[in-house]
Amino acid sequence: MALLEAHHIHKRFGDQVVLENITLAFEENRLNGIMGPNGAGKTTCFNVLTGRYKPDRGRIVFDGEDIGGLPPHKIARKGIARSFQLMNLFDQYTAIENITLALPEVRARGMSMMHDLSTDGETGDKAAGILARIGLAGKERVEARDLSYGERRALEIGVALAAAPRILFLDEPTAGLGAEATGSIAELIAEIRRDLTIVIIEHDMQFLFGLADKITVIHWGQVIAEGTPASLQEDEWVKRSSLGGLA
């Protein structure tokens, strides 16, 4: 059984069908890509999988348990973490403070412990370890607002990792990034993927083709294609268009 499965998900907003009969499965320790053109329903799909929206129909099963309809915080506690397309950092706090704040043991103590966040040996070490893992070693004391855009994206992933999730959802991690920063994020993801199940929404096809074990293509709120990057790229029309043969 896959770690997370969605069966026949339907979602509509008023008269508009946004997701039509979506079935997905994410195997443990695999990197799964979801791609599709703008307006295809990718983000809604993400929001349903991570509990922000309740599906109108269908089941979501995580590690054998039906989690459809659970509130987001309960879903998060089960080991499902996500980063957002819009950034979600505390700007006036340093990189290490942002990570520390997201550690489960610190969260459990509450925000009042904020003043000694980084001085606490064990949590400090743990946070520093996560920063190193996402390539931000040496930036511990830099406030989030002073980091570059690409570094902020990396820090966001670090914040999601701090919760020690079993599955990590990343919503357009390369949005707004140039080629170089996109390369750094790809390296970061290659580094963290080893013992983690990851689901990435992305419309940068080349980025996903280079990283993912499996790709699901969503369009018109439906799964229109699915497979390994190699199998998807075998299609004659895909070859022609990505090689510029149609331009």
Binding site: M205, H219, I224, A225, L232, V238, K239, S241, L246, A247
Partner: peptide, 20 residues
């Protein structure tokens, strides 16, 4: 009924759309 779907030459979606 697909009303003027965007067949974009810049990406590989055409193939996926036709197969769909």
């Amino acid at each position: 009924l697909f009303d003027e779907p965007q067949f974009n030459t810049q990406d590989g979606y055409i193939g996926f759309m036709l197969n769909f």
